[in-house]
Amino acid sequence: MRMSPKPIQSFRGDFTYSNSPGAIARFPFPFPEDEYMYSVNIEPHVTPGPEGSVFEFLFDIDEHYLSEMHERDLVLKENPKRCLAMPHMDQACWDLIERAMTSLSTDYPQHFTLQREGDSWTWENKLLNLKDSFTFGDSSTLPLPPMEYIGRQLQGDIALLDQRDGDLFLDAGIVTCPADWSLAFDAGMSFKEWHGPVPMAHGMGIFDRALKYLCAIPQGRPVRRLNWTLTINARMDTSPETYSEWGADRLSVTPENVADKVHLRVELQVLDRMSRSNALMFSIRTYLISLRDLSTNPEWAKRMHRVMKDLKPELIEYKGLTRYHPMVVEWLSQFDPAN
């Protein structure tokens, strides 16, 4: 089933965010096995994917669109440096604009339309009541810098990676709902540098293999992977910048509220080659679901219990789960009596 955007809900303060039964049904549950191990797990993002699934299109627009765009606005107003583009990434930003506008207007014609006459483009986003005419490639004809302009209309974070010397560099992006990483600090880093804090994976040669693979992605053949962590409350902006505001949330988990407080946070990461710049788009689309909603699917609840129970201590630490991990395992155990 396709999702229609619903009125704005909050990802902070009173946390009114909720998933409808349809959103729960299409949630990208990330564990194919009972044990979780860090791996590259990259696969082709063949579109159109299954109808109604989060994999159907290049950019997934769902019922949380307005809420997420509102949340992004709040973050950028507080800290405009959550969006940046180095000067040499201008062409890549325009590539992203083209890829996003052509995809969205084709995949969601009821919400988005694009008219092109040569370089004269008119873009209409009916969900946000936007209609802009501009000259493609000329940043002075947009109401905002190109990265911010398009980033404010896409759910999920976006990074644009410049490819040179056989490596990928984090040289542009809009990052307002990260799982604890800072675009401002990581800007300009190479692929291995910005993955520096990921434990265990380095010795396994995972990054060498992944980097070679990513550098060779051609146009028209995007790839994807899922990543996950746990988040307390339905908080989108779990950035290092705002850690002072959300760090204490981890102390608020009790056996009574664990099912509603603790959310599985899944990132659908898509990598797609940009046309003119040869940059690689890295989109990180975040989905949140409370343990209670997740447990409405008995298979998920059982597997989630097994994965959590056997999670390696390094990963518990790295993902910041230490304080409440035992309560999660305990609550989930009711769905997995055999274990």
């Binding site: 040499h88 490819q163 040179r164 010397d165 060779a216 051609p218 146009q219 028209g220 053949r221 080659r273 040869n278």
Partner: peptide
Amino acid sequence: ITPPANLFAPNWG
């Protein structure tokens, strides 16, 4: 033909 791929891009720096 396949879609274009690039193993020989200019270094814009």
